[in-house]
Amino acid sequence: MSKKEWPLWEIFIRGQHGLNHRHVGSLHAPDAEMAINHARDVYTRRKEGVSIWVVPSSEITASSPSDKGPLFDPAESKVYRHPTFFDIPDEVGHM
């Protein structure tokens, strides 16, 4: 067994059509530069990307699952944030 396992990295890729970097998966690499090379070889085999971010998995801080209620439920009551909340008369046309 190797003395030390290569650390795990989380890979984010921005696709051909703009939009944000999206998490695509993980891989192992000894450092960030090699993680980028590996990500190119592993996760863009089908022309999936134009830009790669790599982050050590250990550096990801995630929200706690038990906080799901307090974190996300309040948004449910803010219905006025959605365009359908407002009635605009048909005569006004598209808005």
Partner: peptide, 11 residues
């Protein structure tokens, strides 16, 4: 020698 390298060599 490791999965990532296996894939890179195939590329």
């Amino acid at each position: 020698p490791v999965l990532e390298e296996d894939i890179a060599l195939a590329n």
